[in-house]
């Protein structure tokens, strides 16, 4: 990443752009914006200032990046594989792992927020009691669907590595299907919970005691569901490209990388399912 200009084959030193400042500016913009949102209740004036600063930085960042792109500034990619300290590791794979690290932080914050609500809220439903609002058997089925989709995903990669293209396509299609099934069941579950169990993300008049639980439940499972949906987009792309003959023995890194993300989302569910459906307080 960091830049020391390296030499071209001809031997003459060549100045290169080793990176762009604009992604960093956009990240700062997001930091300001979200910090502002967090302080909106306690320090409204400071908060609004932060949000406005964030929006302004966002405009500058996106504008700068687009302008740089239009000027045709190119960044020499230093090869597909990393040097020290990640010697020999694919740059893209390392990038995906670092992205997953940021996702671990995200979900940790989310789950910790849920635990805090559970510990300090006035009421938290007991999974063992008959008026527990969630449908445990249905979601248990959904849990099996998700781990099965992890199996088909890793088998798709394995088939690609072996050059078995028909198997690879079948496993990719199966993963997409199982993932879609998971989200569909979650949508059905949400609508039943919302309209029949009166579990809403805010306190309602019919079951006011469930307000805290509803907030925690919908925030955590909703963000997870959104991640699964994002994974489905990646899987759709893989399926189309697989049918076009893009992947095979010598080209399957995309399958591995989408797979890493997919398995990570599965791991999040491995924690969320017992936390929301099996553990009370």
């Amino acid at each position: 990443m960091e830049g020391h200009a390296h030499e071209r084959p001809g031997g003459e030193p060549h100045e290169e752009h080793q990176g762009s400042i604009w992604p960093l500016v956009i990240a700062l913009a997001a930091g300001f914006g979200f910090a502002g949102l967090a302080f909106l209740r306690s320090y409204p004036i400071v908060a609004i200032g932060l949000v406005l600063a964030g929006v302004a930085l966002l405009v500058v960042g996106v504008g700068g990046w687009v302008r740089q792109d239009l000027r045709g500034v190119s960044f020499e990619v230093r090869g597909r594989f990393e040097e020290r300290p990640f010697v020999g590791i694919s740059s893209r794979k390392l990038g995906m792992w670092i992205f997953i690290v940021s996702e671990i932080f995200f979900f940790t914050g989310l789950i910790a927020g849920g635990l805090a609500l559970r510990a300090h809220g006035e009421y938290w439903p007991d999974p063992a009691s008959p008026d527990f609002p969630l449908n445990i058997p249905l979601t248990a089925v959904n849990t099996f669907i998700l781990i099965a989709s992890s199996l088909t995903m890793v088998e798709a990669l394995h088939a690609a590595q072996r050059g078995k293209l028909t198997q690879m396509r079948a496993f990719l299609a199966a993963t997409l299907l199982l993932g879609s099934l998971f989200v569909s069941i979650q949508v059905v579950e949400y609508s039943k919970l919302f309209f029949e169990e009166h579990l809403t993300p805010w306190p309602n008049l019919l079951r006011p005691e469930l307000g805290t639980f509803g907030t925690a439940f919908y925030t955590q499972t909703g963000f997870h569901g959104a991640h699964v949906t994002g994974g489905l987009l990646g899987l759709s792309y893989l399926n189309v490209m697989a049918w076009r003959g893009r992947y095979g023995k010598d080209n399957h890194e995309a399958i591995e990388l989408v797979g890493l993300y997919w398995h990570f989302v599965d791991i999040v569910w491995i924690f969320l399912f017992p936390l929301m459906y099996l553990i009370g307080r």
Binding site: P85, F86, V87, G88, I89, K93, L94, W97, I98, I100, V101, I104, F105, T108, S150, L151, M153, V154, G259, L260, H263, F264, D266, I267, I270, F271
Partner: peptide, 28 residues
């Protein structure tokens, strides 16, 4: 979670330095 990370995400077979990447946030 450990099984999925080690086998489906192949961490068990990756070089040590890459194994450390997802372990780092676990401290936090």
């Amino acid at each position: 979670a450990g099984l999925v990370a080690m086998y489906y995400m192949h961490l068990r077979y990756e070089p040590r330095i890459l194994q450390l990447v997802p372990l780092a946030p676990l401290v936090f």
